[in-house]
Every structure is written in structure tokens, then in C-alpha cells.
Computed example of a mutant assay.
Amino acid sequence: MTTAVSVFEQGGVIAYPTEAVFGLGCDPDNQAAVEKILKIKNRPVEKGLILLAGDYQQLKPYVDESKLPADVKQQMLSRWPNGVTQVVPASSKAKPFLTGQFSTIAIRVTTQADVVALCQQTGKPIVSTSANYSGEEPGKSWQTVEQDLGSAVDFIIKGDTLGFTKPSTIIDALTGETFRS
């Protein structure tokens, strides 16, 4: 039986529910899988990607915590889980195919049960970018994703978003600057 975990571990692309829309994701350490997502979306690698996880521990290997003052880290952690993506200094484990042209990585902790379960079962975060072709509206249901992207993805988690009305806010964890509200 094909499962989200087996697809993740074999380098496949998964469509899954997030807070407001469906995302496309894969193993963040599998360059070929990340490149497949970029190709599906027609998205330039320079833009970078988000990592989504069920808890901060799964994200820590990708973050250079030595560049996060204790008060900033505490404030960052206090914003989760709440549909807030935070841009933080990237560690060497966060490869350029994830960070794009930046020395930072965008990360988020979610309570969406399907994502939490997948991340717990794999012990890793998942790449997160909206499930749509570049310039198109993101899918808000698995049925829409199946119709729009169908054979382009390897597995669709047939769950529900958390019902947020817009994609996550993106802020710089160090400065508080908002990139997307």
C-alpha cells in the first residue's frame, strides 16, 4: 500500500492540507524531489522554499541557532503554532535548493494533524509551497488539487485545511519585518 510516508521516503511529491491551502511537499534533504516540485510549479530555485513541521525540534537542524539571540528565539517560539512562517538564519544542512538566493530559511510549525503525523513518522519537516502552478490560485481542497495537478504529484493526503482564510504570514524572526501578511 502506498502511503504518504513511503512516498516521502522514496523521493516523491505529496500534496497535503496546511492552515489555509494545500501545499506541495517532499523530503527537504532530497534534491531531486525538491527539483521536481520546482518543475511542477515552474518556480525558480532562487526564491527559496518553506519548511513545515509539527514541532520545532524537526526544524532545528536547518536553523543556525548561534545567530538567534535567546530573546529572539523565545519570541519566535511563542508565535507558534499559529500560521506564522518565520525567516531565520539557515544552517549548513539547509542546502541552496531550499534557501534559494538567501542565507536564511523560512520555517513554520503547524497543528494540522496530517502534517504533524507525517513529520512525526518521518522525523523530519516537509517542504511547503502552495499546491498550484505558478501564478494560479492555490488549491483549497484535495479535490481541487487532484483536478488541477493530478498526475504531477505522487500522493494526495485527503484531509482538510485548518480553515484559515489566507496563507501564512511571513516575518523575519530577527527584525520582525513582515514580508507577507
Rank of each mutant, 00 (worst) to 15 (best):
residue 2 T to W: 03
residue 2 T to N: 13
residue 3 T to W: 13
residue 3 T to I: 08
residue 3 T to S: 15
residue 5 V to N: 02
residue 5 V to D: 04
residue 7 V to E: 06
residue 8 F to A: 06
residue 10 Q to N: 13
residue 11 G to F: 07
residue 12 G to R: 10
residue 13 V to W: 04
residue 14 I to R: 07
residue 17 P to W: 08
residue 19 E to R: 02
residue 19 E to P: 00
residue 21 V to H: 03
residue 21 V to D: 09
residue 26 C to P: 04
residue 27 D to Y: 09
residue 30 N to S: 10
residue 32 A to S: 14
residue 32 A to R: 14
residue 33 A to R: 12
residue 34 V to W: 02
residue 43 R to P: 06
residue 44 P to V: 05
residue 45 V to T: 13
residue 47 K to A: 02
residue 47 K to T: 07
residue 49 L to M: 02
residue 54 G to Q: 14
residue 55 D to S: 11
residue 55 D to E: 15
residue 56 Y to E: 10
residue 58 Q to Y: 14
residue 59 L to H: 11
residue 59 L to A: 08
residue 62 Y to P: 00
residue 62 Y to V: 05
residue 68 L to C: 00
residue 69 P to S: 07
residue 70 A to Y: 02
residue 71 D to G: 01
residue 71 D to H: 12
residue 72 V to W: 06
residue 74 Q to E: 15
residue 76 M to L: 14
residue 77 L to T: 09
residue 80 W to I: 01
residue 80 W to H: 07
residue 81 P to V: 03
residue 84 V to H: 11
residue 84 V to D: 06
residue 84 V to I: 15
residue 84 V to F: 07
residue 87 V to N: 07
residue 91 S to W: 10
residue 92 S to E: 15
residue 94 A to M: 03
residue 100 G to A: 00
residue 101 Q to W: 03
residue 101 Q to F: 03
residue 102 F to E: 11
residue 103 S to A: 13
residue 103 S to N: 15
residue 111 T to Q: 15
residue 115 V to T: 15
residue 115 V to K: 04
residue 116 V to E: 09
residue 117 A to W: 12
residue 119 C to E: 10
residue 121 Q to R: 12
residue 122 T to D: 08
residue 122 T to L: 01
residue 123 G to E: 14
residue 123 G to D: 11
residue 123 G to C: 08
residue 124 K to F: 06
residue 124 K to H: 13
residue 125 P to M: 02
residue 126 I to P: 05
residue 128 S to C: 00
residue 129 T to S: 04
residue 142 W to M: 00
residue 142 W to G: 03
residue 144 T to A: 12
residue 145 V to E: 00
residue 149 L to R: 06
residue 150 G to V: 00
residue 151 S to A: 12
residue 151 S to L: 06
residue 152 A to P: 03
residue 153 V to T: 07
residue 153 V to G: 01
residue 154 D to I: 00
residue 155 F to A: 00
residue 157 I to E: 06
residue 159 G to W: 01
residue 160 D to Y: 09
residue 161 T to F: 00
residue 163 G to I: 07
residue 164 F to S: 07
residue 164 F to G: 04
residue 164 F to N: 05
residue 165 T to Y: 08
residue 169 T to Q: 12
residue 171 I to D: 00
residue 171 I to E: 11
residue 172 D to L: 04
residue 177 E to Y: 12
residue 177 E to D: 13
residue 181 S to G: 12
